[in-house]
Amino acid sequence: MTDTIDITLNGERRAVTRGVTLLQLLASLELDPRAVVVEHNRTIVRRPALGDVRVAPGDAVELVHFVGGG
């Protein structure tokens, strides 16, 4: 059993530590949880719950924020 799993992060396959929470995932990416919105398998995970949700193999995670737009 390897200690990493593959997930799809922002549309790209990525190896992450097995059992990692979304909050830990953000930390590993040096992302401030207050500055992004996390969508886990098409469901929005609100900030207080980020530490409770663990990613599983094949999960789709989207990290979005506001950019310039019209």
């Binding site: 922002n10 990416l29 992302l31 979005v64 924020h65 950019v67 310039g68 737009g69 019209g70």
Partner: peptide, 14 residues
């Protein structure tokens, strides 16, 4: 002021 929602650029999270 309007803004858009897009993926975070994971290569440049800073």
């Amino acid at each position: 002021v309007t803004v858009a929602v897009r993926r975070v650029d994971l290569d440049r999270t800073k």
